[in-house]
Amino acid sequence: MCKHILNVQVAIRAPCCRRWFDCAECHQEVSDHPLRKTDEMVFACKKCKKPFRKNMKDYEEEDEYCPHCDNHYVLEALTPEAKLGIETGDLRKDARVIKDGRTKLKTDPNSIFDIDFSDHVG
């Protein structure tokens, strides 16, 4: 089960190591090499469990379905929700650093942090 894409419909055989993965991120997490790109992909349908090949150069809309059981495997990916959030929302959408809007107060005459000790040194 893929932790990156919750509704994955096919497993993909990596052409570099010939191992099965649910997504490229799953391959990256456990492999010591980059995923090799190829024109011919090998898939295994999660519904009928049968493998099939697709040439990515000639990929068309009807190729979005398993040739064995007609399962539609090209879907918009559902990803897990972020566990941590901030007031502005999901960190994955806005990863900018939040600027601290507080300023140093030097105008308060009674502040102990603004005392000039040079006059009191004996």
Rank of each mutant, 00 (worst) to 15 (best):
M1V: 13
C2Y: 02
K3D: 13
K3Q: 14
K3L: 08
I5A: 04
I5M: 05
I5R: 03
L6K: 07
N7P: 07
N7E: 08
N7D: 12
N7C: 11
V8N: 11
Q9K: 15
Q9L: 09
Q9R: 15
A11E: 15
R13Q: 15
R13W: 01
P15H: 00
C16V: 01
C16I: 01
R18M: 06
R19S: 14
A24I: 05
E25D: 15
H27V: 01
H27D: 01
H27Y: 04
Q28E: 15
E29W: 00
E29I: 01
E29L: 08
V30W: 00
S31V: 01
D32F: 01
H33F: 02
K37F: 05
T38K: 01
D39G: 15
E40I: 15
E40Y: 06
F43S: 02
F43C: 04
A44L: 14
A44G: 03
K47G: 00
C48H: 00
K49Y: 08
P51M: 08
F52V: 03
F52N: 02
R53Q: 12
K54L: 14
Y59E: 05
Y59L: 15
E61I: 10
E62M: 10
E62Y: 07
D63T: 00
D63N: 12
E64S: 13
Y65E: 00
C66H: 01
P67Q: 02
P67G: 05
H68A: 04
H68V: 06
H68W: 10
D70P: 00
N71H: 07
N71M: 09
Y73L: 02
Y73A: 03
L75K: 12
L75I: 12
L75G: 02
E76H: 10
P80C: 04
A82Q: 08
A82I: 00
A82N: 07
A82D: 11
A82L: 02
L84T: 09
L84D: 09
G85L: 05
G85V: 07
I86A: 13
I86H: 11
I86G: 12
T88N: 08
G89C: 03
G89R: 01
D90V: 03
L91I: 10
R92Q: 07
K93R: 10
D94T: 06
D94G: 03
A95D: 13
A95E: 06
I98L: 13
K99C: 05
K99E: 12
K99S: 09
D100T: 05
R102K: 07
R102A: 09
L105E: 14
L105H: 06
L105D: 14
T107L: 12
S111R: 07
I112T: 12
F113Q: 11
D114E: 14
D116M: 06
S118D: 12
S118E: 11
D119E: 13
D119M: 08
D119H: 09
D119S: 12
V121W: 10
